Simulated assay, not measured.
Amino acid sequence: MASRSPPPPPSAASSTGQESESRATPPSSARSAKPAHTWRSEQARIHAGLPEPDPKTTLVVGRWDYLGSGYSPSAALLVVGVWHRKELERQFIAEGGC
């Protein structure tokens, strides 16, 4: 039977907490790569008439529309059904079932 050699020791980078240096993509090129939704965002910005983005500022666009409160009729029906089933289950257990 052949003897197995012990596993290699962990690399110096992982033991010192410098894992970020061993990335396949350098941070500078990762930052310069644009996400896939950039074109859509740019089109929305143009359509809305917003100014060209400035890297030194943050544009915050907020709009709140009140849509109501509480459950919709179909969601309320679902909630009542779940509550009723749980209530039947509680009664069954209280009467000595299972």
Rank of each mutant, 00 (worst) to 15 (best):
S32G: 14
D65K: 11
A94I: 01
W64R: 13
G62N: 13
G81K: 12
R40P: 02
K34N: 09
D65G: 12
P73S: 05
R45S: 03
G96I: 00
R40E: 00
A2Q: 10
P35V: 10
R85F: 13
P26N: 01
K56P: 02
R90A: 10
Q18T: 15
S28M: 13
P53H: 06
L88F: 11
P27T: 01
P9K: 11
W83A: 13
S69N: 05
F92A: 10
R40H: 09
E95F: 08
R90H: 07
P35T: 06
A13G: 03
V61M: 08
F92W: 06
E95L: 15
G62C: 10
A94C: 03
S20Q: 07
A12P: 09
L67G: 06
G96P: 02
S3P: 15
V79P: 07
D54S: 07
A33L: 03
G96M: 01
S15C: 11
A75N: 00
R85A: 09
A30V: 01
R4V: 08
I46P: 02
S5A: 13
G17T: 00
V82D: 11
S41E: 10
I46N: 01
R40G: 06
G62M: 08
H84K: 10
P8S: 15
T16R: 11
G68R: 01
I46Q: 01
I93F: 12
T57F: 13
S15D: 07
T38G: 04
M1V: 09
H84I: 13
A2N: 15
K34D: 02
R31Y: 02
Y71N: 06
S3G: 15
L59S: 04
M1K: 11
S29C: 01
F92T: 05
P26F: 04
K86D: 04
A12Y: 15
E21V: 13
E89F: 08
R23Y: 05
A36E: 08
V80M: 07
E95S: 11
L88K: 14
A76Q: 08
R23K: 07
L59C: 10
T25L: 15
P7W: 03
A30E: 00
R31P: 06
P51E: 03
T16I: 08
P26H: 07
R85P: 09
G97Q: 01
A33P: 07
P6T: 01
C98Q: 14
Y71P: 03
R90C: 03
P51W: 03
E42N: 11
A12D: 08
P51F: 06
E87R: 15
A75W: 04
T25V: 14
Q43E: 05
Q18F: 12
H47Q: 14
R90E: 10
P26S: 06
